[in-house]
């Protein structure tokens, strides 16, 4: 009904009008190149736009408002933390030892690096090996493949507190590692395993089959093909996944509280309890004693994670560009 009304009310002199106001806007924008008529046409389009139903207006406004609100939320969250935190970043926040006066985040930062490296040392070889198996060795319909997919999907959905509890039961208690760097790293390794596997598998699958054929055709075995042709080509994608994994490790707290503990000093062995920056942040925030330092710590943590995630995005873009060019 509305459409008929639209058509009838439009001035007949109007160019063969696109049937809808929405399309008219685009068509109008495109046609605006014809300079002379541009102004008049825009005016007409606008007038036509007033003929859009109220319902169309609402439907147009809703997504725009939602996007605006989302953008505002993101902006506010990040800017608020930065504004509140940056003035309180001081040198003593980075002293090498922690005490309750300087509330230094340095030990936690170093621990985060150690924890990350250790967790990656477990997760990357296993995850990469698993991905190579899924992408290059397993035949379709292999029962193990189905099982591994289900397992990886399940692992990906398990909440981090459940990982923490498992780490507590298995590594800390049963293997007797106490709350330690090692127990925390192993727990985190399991947590990021599905991420590493799925990104690495995707990156391997993105390598053109022609290169596989070329390599096999020259008499290279599967292992050599994987090592010399596939892994180098898939490297950016694999790295993007690893960096995403680093982001998760750095941001993780629930899985670590009961596996790596909350000790503030630097570890002297793999079996010493440590706190990472996120756990440190949690402890500070829930103690509520050093609000300013907490803001400053939040800034450091936020920037660290943002940096890591940006690196991942950039790498992934580079990969997709490379694949497109071939």
């Amino acid at each position: 009904m509305r459409l008929i009304h639209d058509g009838a009310s439009g001035p007949t002199a109007l160019k063969p009008a696109p049937a809808t106001a929405g399309a008219a806007t685009t068509a109008g924008a495109a046609g605006a190149a014809a300079a002379g008529a541009a102004v008049r046409r825009t005016a007409r389009v606008r007038r036509r736009a007033t003929h859009r139903s109220v319902r169309d207006h609402i439907l147009h406004a809703l997504p725009c408002l939602a996007a605006l609100l989302t953008a505002a939320l993101i902006g506010f969250l990040i800017i608020y933390i930065l504004v509140m935190g940056i003035p309180h970043i001081s040198p003593d926040l980075f002293s090498i030892t922690y005490n309750s006066v300087n509330v230094s985040l340095m030990p936690a930062l170093i621990n985060t690096v150690l924890m990350t490296l250790l967790a990656l040392a477990f997760a990357v070889p296993i995850g990469l090996g698993g991905a190579i198996f899924l992408a290059e060795y397993a035949r379709r319909g292999n029962r193990l493949v189905g099982l591994i997919r289900i397992a990886a999907d399940t692992l990906a959905g398990v909440p981090s507190i459940v990982y923490g509890l498992f780490g507590l039961l298995f590594f800390v208690t049963m293997l007797g590692w106490r709350m330690s760097l090692l127990a925390g790293a192993c727990t985190l390794a399991i947590m990021i395993l599905p991420l590493i596997i799925s990104t690495a598998e995707e990156a391997l699958r993105a390598v053109p089959d022609a290169w596989r054929e070329g390599s096999f055709g020259l008499g290279a075995g599967r292992l050599r093909t994987v090592g010399r042709i596939l892994l180098p080509s898939a490297l950016p994608g694999i790295l993007a996944g690893v960096i995403l994994g680093i982001g998760r490790i750095v941001g993780e707290s629930a899985a670590l509280i009961y596996t790596a503990g909350t000790a503030t000093s630097l570890p002297t062995s793999l079996f010493d309890s440590t706190r990472t920056l996120s756990v440190h942040m949690y402890v500070l925030a829930s103690e509520g004693l050093h609000l300013e330092k907490t803001y400053a710590t939040a800034v450091v943590l936020l920037l660290l994670v943002l940096l890591i995630n940006t690196a991942s995005v950039v790498l992934a873009r580079r990969l997709s560009r490379k694949v497109r060019n071939v």
Binding site: E213, S215, F216, G217, G219
Partner: peptide, 25 residues
């Protein structure tokens, strides 16, 4: 496959240098 070489429908050089491509075999 070393004894029976193959050239494919579409050229499929590996993403490496000319030299490394030829030295791969």
């Amino acid at each position: 496959r070393k004894r029976v070489g193959m050239v494919f429908q579409k050229p499929n050089p590996f993403p490496m240098s000319v030299y490394d491509n030829i030295a791969f075999g």
